[in-house]
Design a protein around this nucleic acid. Structure first.
Lengths: 206, 206
DNA sequence: TGACTCTTCGGATTTTGTTCGGTAGAATAA
DNA sequence: TTATTCTACCGAACAAAATCCGAAGAGTCA
């Protein structure tokens, strides 16, 4: 039932899933091809066919934009999931990786989304006024396109990682800290910025 | 059934497990080889074969990235535990009980102590400066005699419940909020006070 | 009809798992 | 002790699977 996917298949599935959740309708094969810089929609067709065969997607025959998501069943079935603690997020610093063998943190299932999730430990106080302190663990779910107001892990200039709230405004993106001593970061259009994921939960140990 | 693994096999299994949980797809043999600095994928193939034989993994024949994890039932079952959400703690108010059939919150195993534990939802801002906000869930472990400095759920006068830090000082007990707008509560010796438990964890959903 | 869209086919390239023969050390049995 | 077995590893060659391309064909819908 839960057939394993290849890397590419998983990437396509993630893209389709996000697209549908964002727009409410499925992407066309051409749109998928454009996103992955494919020269031919035939490649997309093959990937979609694989995903349908493996039970990850459904679609209608010869129907435009007819890809549908299949309900993920592994979530309810799994009692709890050990997510890897990938590293630390500190404002203005790249994510420090904690060695080759990351620890895992057991996370309640309701915090694990359909897509890839992981855990980061917080360092610094850029979100202090929202009660996110140094040492806390944030559960992050991968997502390229966040909604306005969501808390995100953003990579600026390809190197610096930061935990901020995301606001897309006219002509730029604003990354807003929750710390009155810190200024928001304005990302002008065209500046390379990568959203690593959105924060969906917080865990603190005493 | 639970065949013993060698040291190396366990390392490989751990890496594969984390890789799959993080990425959503299995690593290729060459990726595994690179991680362990192997010069040959044949070594990886042997380890994977051993793990499959011992029932720790499954895989398809001649299929790319087809390693699958087996149900973790008998392996290392550390399921998360559903603790009851007993009610709300708001400063100066008794714990409001949420009906007879309390909801449960899945809590990571490391937050469940040996003794009875339960969950309370926070209302109010008596601990705001420690990043505990309205709506957060605190995991409470029953404990009559807290250590100094621990965060406790205290029942004063048999009725009012409050979330504070506990300090036993000469002649009295001080219950300290983390909110500079609020005064500490001084409990003189002899005054009836009951410690419901200490806070061992915090969980927040976004 | 025209504008999109999905489908299909042959063929090229890359990625990936499989297999074989061989080395070395440590533990085990005779 | 020697012989044997097990684990760990290497290098190379191979075949199958996965990925990708370009173009032409066919379905859907307004």
């Amino acid at each position: 039932m839960a057939e394993p996917l290849t890397k590419r298949q998983k990437e396509v599935l993630d893209y389709v899933t996000q697209f549908i959740e964002l727009h409410g309708y499925a992407p066309s094969y051409r749109e998928i091809a454009a996103h992955f810089n494919y020269g031919s929609v035939a490649t997309v067709a093959e990937h979609i066919e694989s995903l349908v065969t493996k039970g990850m997607l459904q679609k209608g025959d010869n129907e435009a934009r007819s890809i549908q998501l299949v309900k993920a069943d592994h979530i309810d079935a799994t009692p709890s999931i050990g997510l890897p603690i990938l590293g630390l997020v500190a404002a203005g610093q790249p994510i420090e990786t904690l060695g080759v063998h990351p620890e895992t943190l057991e996370v309640p299932p309701f915090m694990v989304g359909r897509r890839n999730s992981y855990v980061l430990q917080v360092k610094g106080d850029s979100m202090i006024e929202e009660g996110i302190h140094t040492g806390d663990y944030v559960v992050v779910q991968e997502k390229d396109v966040p909604s306005n107001g969501e808390m995100v892990i953003a990579l600026i200039n390809g190197g610096e990682a930061t935990l901020k709230r995301y606001y897309k405004e006219k002509g730029h993106i604003r990354l807003q800290p929750s710390n009155s001593a810190m200024e928001p970061i304005i990302i002008k259009q065209g500046t390379p910025i990568q959203i690593q994921g959105v924060v969906i939960g917080l865990i603190r140990k005493y």
